[in-house]
């Protein structure tokens, strides 16, 4: 991609355009990674940044690494991340409020200082000219890498293999949980539930209407208040519960009335008994 001429000092205009556009995307992705409230969003932003980096690798003549970056990093590792986020972070609402005193200022100051130092260091270095990879990649990038890996870096390569094995075993050891007692049977669990006097029958279903019996809407108790038992705790933790006990009910009533008008159907005894019926106790309770 780059010029074959040795010791060039500029790249092609196309690469420059690509750098400025994708570089901006990468920085935005990185910022989103650290600023997004939800871990899933962070992971996706990071994946975006990584794909941009993969393009940059390709632009810099590292074809093998570019592909590996997409396949291994963005594909495998980021999916692993997402998997763990789903496994772990679902109920963990991550607030961005700082709890350690002064930590944010320290982080900002240090980060700024460190960045300035790095950039000053790079700016100080005399890196006007570059050789380009034309010669090194002449026999093919993958072949060149392979030649180095299996000759010059063979010991590091072997050690990396050992490291990977160790990591795999380590992950297994860390996550494996030895079952030390017999699993309780369903019968035993139900007996325990009866003995403890907790909710013996199945939990009540969410929703009370045919149109609103989605899992994210809590069922209403006879007095019109929503029941905590009817929705999944995960949804509650995520804050994804829609409450229809109050304003939503009036909205529904409004909608029904308008549809009646639109159908030019006199509000018959059926609809009046269907819609406002259950809502009436609720309104009484409000008063």
């Amino acid at each position: 991609m780059t010029g074959l001429a040795a010791a060039a000092s500029t790249t092609s205009l196309g690469e420059a355009v690509q750098f400025w556009i994708l570089g901006t995307v990468a920085v935005i992705g990185a910022l989103c990674t650290i600023l997004m409230k939800r871990a899933v969003h962070s992971a996706l932003s990071l994946a975006g940044t990584m794909i941009v980096l993969a393009v940059f690798y390709l632009a810099n003549g590292a074809y093998f690494l570019g592909v590996v970056q997409i396949v291994v990093y963005t594909g495998a590792i980021m999916m692993l991340f997402l998997f763990v986020v789903m496994l772990v972070g679902v109920t963990a609402a991550d607030s961005l409020k700082e709890t350690l005193k002064g930590q944010r200022w320290l982080a900002a100051g240090l980060g700024l200082g460190f960045g300035i130092l790095l950039i000053a260091g790079i700016g100080n270095a005399s890196l006007r000219h570059f050789d380009g990879l034309g010669q090194a990649n002449a026999g093919g990038n993958v072949q060149g890498l392979a030649a180095l890996i299996f000759t010059k870096y063979v010991f590091a390569f072997e050690a990396t293999g050992a490291l990977l094995i160790t990591a795999a075993v380590g992950a297994m050891v860390l996550t494996h949980r030895e079952r030390t007692e017999r699993a309780t049977s369903q019968r035993e669990r139900s007996q325990a539930r009866v003995r403890a006097g907790k909710q013996v029958p199945p939990l009540p279903a969410p929703g009370v209407y045919a149109r609103h019996n989605a899992v994210d809407i809590p069922g209403l108790l006879p007095d019109g208040t929503p029941s905590e038992l009817t929705v999944n705790p995960t949804l509650r933790a995520r804050g994804q519960i829609r409450d229809v006990s109050g304003e939503a009910l009036t909205g529904v009533k409004e909608l029904e009335r308008r549809s009646e008008d639109w159908l030019e159907r006199d509000s018959g005894p059926r609809s009046s008994s269907a819609a406002p019926g259950p809502a009436a106790p609720k309104e009484e309770a409000k008063k």
């Binding site: 240090l110 980060g111 460190f114 130092l117």
Partner: peptide, 10 residues
Amino acid sequence: MLGGAAVLVA
């Protein structure tokens, strides 16, 4: 650690 690294770089 970051402070130490900054000092080292400096």
